[in-house]
Amino acid sequence: MAISLDLITGAISFLFTLLILSYVIGDNPLFKIGTYIFVGVSAGFIAAIAVWQVVIPRLVSPLISTSVSITEKGLLLVPLLGALLLIMKISPRLSGMGRIVMAFLTGVGAAVTIAGALTGTLMPQVMGTINAFDMAPYQGNAGLLLESITNGAIVLFGTIFTLSYFHFGARPRADGSMRRLGLIEIFAWVGRVFIGITLGAIFAGVYAAALTALIERLSSLINFIGNFL
């Protein structure tokens, strides 16, 4: 195998995989070195991306370009000023100035999430729960119709019970304790079961993802060694 960029990449990859997998025998300096190098490299990479993909093309280049109109350049002075205010956050004395930018980002972010949650999740999901009972596609097939209604009902009740679990309105009792209404309490209890099922499915998914990552790493180790055999 000739020494190439691929071989160098493979060797480095092999080394770092072993450094990290050494954690199996316990926390050790090799593992620490590997993780610290990784954090440093990742942060440096992100910084380079931020410069080349954000600052230069969206701020610096348009400001120095001759093909950009004066109006556009003038509008870019606002984020330029904002960037300077953000940089002031580095200094403890001037960090308060960064609040203006943070306020802007928070306001814009809140608006975007409100609109997204309302139009992209809340209304479509409610409609999706209702549409599960649409019988039109199953007309003439009693088995499928029954299955569809059953599944739709399970999803509907699962959704309602789960939402009941997140309902925290309570009334004080004679003994001073706070309890939910009786019906809500029962719904919430069933909701816990549904949440448990969902979390169980998510756990299996997380394990599957982690297992695939482990398989991919072990496979790469075997393949690298295989190059020399």
């Binding site: 992209g120 479509p124 999901q125 409609m127 999706g128 729960t129 549409n131 599960a132 999803v155 969902t198 499915a201 998510i202 299996a204 998914g205 997380v206 599957a208 993802a209 695939t212």
Partner: peptide, 17 residues
């Protein structure tokens, strides 16, 4: 998607989004 994200993406499929 990754297997870990699938259970939370599934509702968007059933709602035909």
């Amino acid at each position: 998607s990754s297997a870990q994200a699938a259970p939370m993406i599934q509702p968007y499929y059933t709602s035909q989004q």
